[in-house]
Design a protein around this nucleic acid. Structure first.
Length: 496
RNA sequence: GGCGCCAUCGUCUAGGGGUAAGGACACCGCCCUCUCAAGGCGGAGACACGGGUUCAAUUCCCGUUGGCGCUACCA
């Protein structure tokens, strides 16, 4: 009997809770629970600029909604806490110090300017030129204590080849010469992913590192760190990446990726989970519909197929339909509908908006339909702003999507300010600017007050409908997007 | 560009040296039916290409091509 299985999901709280996170969480969870192991949630918030508490809360909430309950996490203390990396800074610093002392790492005092210059000089292919690698320790200490800013880099061998095992792919090898002297502590004192993940996975007793394929190329860095620390390697298992229809990595521009969107659009957590379970894996009997319990009882990681699966909303809808038809009595469905949207709370928020516009009680139906829908049908011809070409309207909608993404809260008041500001910036009358939003969000030119309605609809659904409108206007191509981003940063300030 | 990973119907997949290459979504047709769904039945639809290995390759090996990913003081 080997040691107990311990796995983790380690999301970075930098945006909407992503279905890719749910996908990774599902396989980690099912693997651990299938063999009496533990499933740990760790928040990787080492990017100070992009991490937010709202995002973290949303991620926890959506994983709970899916029913993937963790055994240890930021809100459930365990023997290896804290489970938020920003609260573990001392641990990383201490480990970085030990590498420094052992000569496995060094301070790098290079400025951004020097690095930029170096890169343009030698092209983008070669990594850091190891300029600071040979600074004598005494000298390094002196400069550091003199207050000169620095990062800490790990030493990577100049030659030889790194060989490691991936549970699904077998042996993988990569020349050390192609690996960079990775920064492990940033100048703000925070660790980068590579240090933090290795230290935490070890300290938290993680036995199987199950994560996305995008990490394969950094495994050598991790392997080296394990070696420097004298720790045993966990088992690496890199899952394929979920894809858009065009096979690129699943992205919100081409697909709904926010778990909250699916929730709002009326998908059931068990159906979404089941669908995700079909990505790269199949039940032994080939049955498409299965419960989490059945999945964890049957999951064998080795059986996962490696072609990147395309996320097909149509099949998800079909599966979701099966759950609705097969697993609910009319009574149970009624309750489900009530908890989803047909409840006093939600209807209570809508009433004040429609009451002034009601001539008969029956007008309720068409006036509020958009609040209970996923897609709303609209006539693309009506997505107009006075004096603007359709393509310009699409660009303005794209700007608004970006602005809304940056928007912390989603209150009517904040939206009011946001759109007024946008109207001024774009030199448009608010009324003209808003016209296509009414159409995109409700399918009609007139609706209940926009900002209040948006608040009720929620950020995810609003942005989804705006993206659909952008598509209907011919979309924004990749090339065009770059240009637009520049324009955007001029008009509204930097965006990342 | 460099490096890494990957490759069965349009999509998700099963399979594996000798199969009629199986299932599901989507699509088409028929049945059921007050409509539409659902359901039933049927249809069309795949082993990327080229070399090996072998009595025999879709399956094993190599190459090509293609796709994706990584190439940040982001994860």
């Amino acid at each position: 009997m080997g040691e107990q299985v311990r796995v983790r999901i380690a999301p970075s709280p930098t945006g909407d809770p992503h279905v890719g996170t749910a996908y990774q969480a599902l396989f980690n969870y099912a693997f651990a629970k299938g063999r009496g192991g533990k499933f740990i949630l760790r928040i990787e918030d080492t990017d100070q600029a992009r991490s937010t508490k709202e995002s973290e809360d949303a991620i926890l909430e959506s994983l709970r909604w899916l029913g993937l309950q963790w055994d240890e996490g930021p809100d459930i203390d365990g023997p290896h806490g804290p489970y938020r990396q920003s609260e573990r800074l001392a641990i990383y610093r201490q480990h970085a110090e030990s590498l420094l002392k052992a000569g496995h790492a060094y301070r790098c005092f290079c400025t951004r300017e020097r690095l930029d210059k170096m890169r343009t000089r030698q092209g983008p292919d070669t990594g850091y030129d190891r300029h600071c690698r040979n600074i004598l320790p005494a000298e390094s200490d002196k400069r550091a204590s003199a207050g000169q800013p620095f990062v800490i880099r790990m030493k990577i061998p100049g030659e030889g080849v790194c060989v490691f095992q991936d549970l699904l792919r077998g042996e993988i090898r990569k020349d050390w010469a192609l690996v960079d002297d990775q920064i492990i502590i940033k100048s703000d004192g925070f660790p980068t992913y590579h240090l933090a993940v290795v230290v935490d996975d070890h300290l938290m007793g993680i036995t199987h590192v199950i994560r996305g394929e995008e990490w394969i190329n950094s495994v050598p860095k991790h392997v080296k760190l394990y070696e420097y620390f004298g720790w045993d390697l966990p088992i690496f298992c890199h899952l394929p990446l979920l894809r858009n229809k065009d096979k690129s990595k699943l992205s919100k521009r081409k697909n709904p990726t926010s778990i909250n969107y699916y929730r709002r659009a009326g998908f059931l957590p068990e159906a979404l989970l089941n669908y995700l379970g079909l990505m790269g894996w199949a039940m032994p009997d080939g049955e498409d519909k299965f419960t989490l319990q059945q999945m964890l009882a049957n999951l064998q990681l080795e059986k996962i197929s490696l072609g990147g699966p395309v996320f097909d909303v149509d099949k998800l809808r079909w599966l979701n339909g099966r759950y609705i038809r097969e697993d609910f009595s009319p009574r149970a469905l009624q309750e489900k509908l009530e908890s989803w949207a047909l409840n006093r709370e939600r209807i209570g928020r809508i009433i004040p908006l429609v009451q002034p516009r009601l001539e008969t009680l029956a007008d309720w139906g068409h006036l509020t339909a958009a609040f209970f829908a996923d897609e709303v049908p609209f006539d693309p011809q009506q997505l107009k702003i006075k004096g603007k070409a359709p393509q310009e309207v699409a660009e303005i909608l794209q700007f608004s999507v970006w602005r809304l993404e940056e928007q912390g809260g989603f209150s009517a008041k904040a939206l009011d300010a946001l759109f007024r500001n946008m109207a001024v910036t774009l030199e448009l009358k608010l009324r003209d600017l808003l016209a296509p939003f009414f159409v995109a969000l409700s399918g009609r030119r007139v609706w209940t007050p926009l900002f209040d309605s948006m608040e009720i609809l929620g950020s995810d659904m609003v942005r989804m409908r705006l993206r659909r409108a952008i598509e209907a206007l011919g979309g924004v191509s990749g090339k065009k997007l770059k240009k637009l981003e520049k324009e955007y940063s001029v008009l509204f300030g930097r965006r990342d």
